[in-house]
Design a protein around this nucleic acid. Structure first.
Lengths: 200, 200, 200, 200
DNA sequence: AATGAATGAGAATTCATTCAT
DNA sequence: GATGAATGAATTCTCATTCAT
């Protein structure tokens, strides 16, 4: 043949499609949440619906792939935060990274807010995101910057307190309410145990 | 006569079904949220789906009927809270009443958490629940028991911070996590403005 | 017992119900056409739906009973028209009687306008209404008051030409359009055969 | 390559189905009126019901698509009629074109005969069909070929007089009765006002 | 005998997933 | 390999008719 082997040509094409699908799915899930139809994603990607199914056997697996990429980025951000000298600032930076992704992405909000759905994803987020964040939490707590009557395992719920406030303005790229209520939560975390928290 | 009139006899049966429908709907909406099908509710009530439509012309009206009862109870609780002498305790009592109903009922959570759905109900909750709660909030703030950089209009979001933590255990009749994180939030509210909250 | 026998008391009651059902059905069919629900008729009659089914095994049979009464009245009107001295005026009077009933009664319009429904009723109307009207038509034709290229069997279609125009104003007790277009049709009937009608 | 592109190959199949759907819908609406179910149309087309919804988002839009084609043809016929030299013949030709389509199609009859349904379509027919026909009517009237006590706005009702007679034989491709009674109506229209029409 | 209640059989519409080309 | 097309399984809601009291 005149050019590269047809095999390679196809792979280039296929990869381009793969990328467009992922990008379109990302955008669509972010905007519309999990309820978005496969057809809409295909439309945005400029491919046929069946092409999506060639790569991703189900809608959930497509979502999983999106999450995977995002979680990878998040892992990097958290690693960067971990390198910060001040434990409290490190924790806040890590939390901010998570919150930013969530508030920019409707389906991310749904995944952590809603019960009984996307369980597999939740597990993965626990392992890859909340475990390293817990380390930061413990460190800040050990340094006396966080009240003692909280446990690192509560981090998912604490973060949810903040992201829940962003549910109604997820389109805004800078979710002002999330920033505001994270500050409020931070005050609570720093409170030198003035009250007795009932067991969770 | 010794027995009741035939009119009443019929009503007994009908009322039993009516009660079963309401109970089943309550339970199903509480467990599964608004997405539950009428068929599922009918199954739980032991009646045909069309029977539900006899009493409740649409799914939304069925939901509304259940909400209405709950909101009525809530109004009483809030009124009772309003009668408490200490403004701060009054506010907490009112919030607790709302949170208890929300955490016991998935669809109640959805109504307040999700945007673009059940708008009519949201309006009703605003008028019948959040308005009286805002009064309590203002009172507590005027008495110096709540930091000054918060506004009563933020009450829905603040409450959402707490209820969001109960999303994953809404079936539990005593939502321990909600109680715990309400206490945490209370600490934040009472903080004498140690940090500057960014605008929401 | 103090009053009449319970047997007779019941029959009086039953007859009153029967009358109310017929009256309500008449009114409801007249206003809303055949699409009216049995429940609506029952509501207007002040009885339960099942009571209607006790007397009339199906909705169609109920309709039939209504028609039966109306057709009886119509027979009388036509008989009266038949007694009129002038054949042309007699025919017009008969036609007017039919048209009045039709235009005052939506379901009557439907029965004659629509194909494939209420076939049994159509047959009955043919026998009890159109046959005597045809006699009047033939008489008027024999007296030279109607053009010769029409046949008495066409009477149903000719009348339909008029009633069709009343479809959109059937609520009006005096259907002005029907009167107007009956006059127009009358001109056509009286035309001394100026054109050659193609076969129908 | 010898064969067409795969793009086009697919479209051939789809187009065949599309054609079958339109043909089946046309036929079914013509035979059974608007009450025909989508399922029945799908059955006749040999496809699943959902396939119809792929092309036509609602039943009404499917109907509209079919109407649209017919009305387009009708517009051409009326334009051709308008070009005829004799105003009376032009009007008759225009009316005939409309009547032919109506009598061949039950749902077309329903659209004009029944009140309160297919309002959007009625509007479109008014603009695209009755307005140009009214011009023809006025012209014929101005030329003295139509009695003066009629108004162009009565055209819909006048035509309904004719089509109503075809209601019971709408499947017949050549609606003999409509032709016959149009001729009868024509005589009435041409009558040099021998009677006084009551107001409609 | 009377009735309100109950329901089964639809009807329109949607969407994740599979198939034919 | 890719794709538009096709569809089965749901879901909400309606109504003539039957049933339990």
């Amino acid at each position: 043949m005149a050019t590269t082997s047809p095999d390679r040509a196809l792979r280039v094409d296929a990869q381009r499609n793969q990328d467009r699908i992922v990008a379109a799915a990302h955008e669509a899930f972010a905007e519309l949440g999990y309820e978005v139809t496969i057809e809409e994603i295909a439309r945005r990607a400029g491919v046929g619906a069946a092409t999506i199914y060639r790569r991703f056997p189900t809608k959930e697996r497509l979502l999983h792939a999106i999450f995977d990429t995002r979680i990878g980025e998040l892992e990097l951000d958290i690693a960067a935060a971990t390198a910060m000298p001040d434990p409290w600032e490190a924790l806040l930076a890590g939390i901010r990274a998570l919150i930013e992704i969530q508030t920019a992405n409707m389906v991310f909000l749904q995944a952590l807010d809603q019960s009984g759905v996307m369980l597999e994803l939740k597990d993965e987020i626990n392992v890859r995101v909340f475990e390293p964040l817990s380390v930061l939490f413990s460190r800040a707590q050990a340094s006396g910057q966080i009240r003692g009557d909280l446990d690192p395992s509560e981090l998912p719920l604490l973060i949810q307190m903040v992201t829940a406030t962003a549910k109604h303005t997820p389109t805004c790229p800078t979710p002002a309410s999330a920033v505001r209520y994270l500050a409020l939560l931070a005050d609570a975390l720093r409170t030198p145990t003035p009250s007795v928290l009932p067991p969770g």
